[in-house]
Design a protein around this nucleic acid. Sequence first.
DNA 1: ACCGTCCCTGAATCATTGG
DNA 2: TCCAATGATTCAGGGACGG
Lengths: 401, 401
Amino acid sequence: MELNKIYKGNSLTKLKSIADNSIDLIYMDPPFFTQRKHQLSSKNAKQKFEFSDVWENVEAYLAFIQRILIESKRVLKDTGSIFLHCDKTASHHLRLLLDQVFGVNNFRSEIIWFYKRWSNAKKGLLNAHQNIYFYSKSNNFKFNTIYQDYSLTTNIDQILQERTRQLNGKSTYKRDEKGQVVLGKEKKGVPLSDVWEIPYLNPKARERVGYPTQKPVLLLNQIIKIASDENDVVLDPFCGSGTTCVSAAFLKRAFIGIDISKDAVKLARKRLDKMVITQSDLLQKGKQFYLEKTPKELYILKSIGAFPVQRNSGIDGFLDHHFNGKPIPVKIQSKEETLENSIAKLEKASNNKGYELKIIIQTNSKENISLLELNPDVKVIKSMGLKIQEIKSVQKELIPK
Amino acid sequence: MELNKIYKGNSLTKLKSIADNSIDLIYMDPPFFTQRKHQLSSKNAKQKFEFSDVWENVEAYLAFIQRILIESKRVLKDTGSIFLHCDKTASHHLRLLLDQVFGVNNFRSEIIWFYKRWSNAKKGLLNAHQNIYFYSKSNNFKFNTIYQDYSLTTNIDQILQERTRQLNGKSTYKRDEKGQVVLGKEKKGVPLSDVWEIPYLNPKARERVGYPTQKPVLLLNQIIKIASDENDVVLDPFCGSGTTCVSAAFLKRAFIGIDISKDAVKLARKRLDKMVITQSDLLQKGKQFYLEKTPKELYILKSIGAFPVQRNSGIDGFLDHHFNGKPIPVKIQSKEETLENSIAKLEKASNNKGYELKIIIQTNSKENISLLELNPDVKVIKSMGLKIQEIKSVQKELIPK
DNA sequence: ACCGTCCCTGAATCATTGG
DNA sequence: TCCAATGATTCAGGGACGG
């Protein structure tokens, strides 16, 4: 089967045409057994998408899913994993199937995706989570740990110290002969837990394409990051509007998408086209479409009191105070760009706009632009990260061996 | 059976001696099928508590629980509910039993209790939640909605305003003849959802009594509040150290506790005499209290790839890579501080720690520290915001009028 | 193959110090 | 005497290791 394609057809049939041990990661988001027909319209209301989740009984539903799972296991590589997304309606039945097909020992995690939601007047608790079951094909599964910030209550300077045991077996922080604390090895933060708070797709989100039960790309990004590497193959046998494929493409994984609805496949392909074009175009447009700025860029902008600008490849933000009555555009040098390149882009985007001061944040190279070549209204500032790098390398030379 | 007592004995036998339709709420926290023996010592190490959670197979475990559930249903009033606490190990099996005994239609919620806890070197996601299944005996179940604060991002003064529809059908906020907004009826907040973040009972918490698997009273409070009223009867057939009874007593509900361990019963009785409920700082003061950094400081830290440190007046963060095998502390000059002052604080906090490189981010003054006064391992970096300010003031002089 | 023991872990508390 | 700052403590985990 060809990669990076979305196929229209029955999931089971299409799965059967995939070779054994060829897939690294399967994410599936099958019907939840809601016994309802789901429909939603695209934003311009031109098109209505729908799919039916009505079954004769739960056994019929489970028999269907079971066949899908058996094929899924077959196509997975030995190091592969499957993520089955569902909700409380049938989660227990589905997990029994997973236990059966993949084995109890290959259960890895129950991931809870939760979100804050607009409330209604139902008697009872507001539903605000869905379940994702993570099973691997074997013990030898692929896993990349993601690290997160320490809790606010953690004493981080303590955590960085090495510990030892006293004679009575109690643990304390180690000190050397001089009474100095002994520092431990590098820490990366706290490993990601099985409870993920990721905002539900806001009804107004640009990402929304009008497909019912659409999942946020951020959720898929996290799954794909922890369970696969670049160039691995990701499969989604119920791909709907194609979120999994978009995420896979964005993260440089190969993908196969399958859906039975002609409209869904058409939509997913369209969504992906936008994405794929952008990939060749330095991923710029894709980033803007789905992720806007990288977190780091956002942090840089925020730290200088600038607000971000989307959809402009030459300007990343504007400072929140004017200069001589004119806005001050800011551009952050991106990974792929030379400094010169960045400056040219900023100049181009500022053409005819009358800005009196423009700022470039230099981030990832030590090339120095001669001040003479620079227009006097363009200022280059080294990012603090870059400065720290420089300090580190100079410092290293000074330290006595 | 007499109320407000804790009974020693087999759960099933004791349950059988309770009258039909006499209980308002059952909470149970049976063994989780961990296939392990759980043990823990009381703080003074005088007493060791333990229970075994080892079973021949899952069927034996389920048969045991099933009998308990059948009796539980019998003793519940028609308006009553049951909360079954478990974890991922057997949650799916247990929910099938609940479906069987109480009926699929009486499933109310899957409550996710999540928390932060210490981490470990596991390959995979860190477990940070447990599951509580909420079933009622009938549709006519008792339920009290708890309202919580609006999320911080909600625009509260807008929510309080009354809305109306324009001629074109669009919704807007209403205004009276004078153009003043019209305030709507009282809002109570957001109804409680099925995902609860309640701090795990910390190893050092005073509330801890040394019984393994002890649950926080705050968790039980929430359950008892939503599913019962004052003077109702709460039953816990696996009461262990008696948390449920403490919570019930505290909330003025009657209770019956049952446990098979003599030691547990003794402990629970003692605990009831002298109730200790941890006033969790984290819950009481809220996360905001611990968040000492301003958003700008956080952005600066993130933009240089540092993780924030909350509880240390001399260090704001650590870079995420070591230098010569040692962490690099970062301090951001705060508004009220002179640069000299900041440096002194950083030096003090680093005392005896053996850091080989320390970084100060200068933010809000143009004072320059003579390099001679500075220890060679302290480096001052001007923040990008400061540099932009400097550029602006120099630029202003250069601009032709 | 299975067991107990040891180690590393970090969140959130208690405990002690310092002004 | 009272906070505020920070040092000390310990576990419904989980891997490695040795018998």
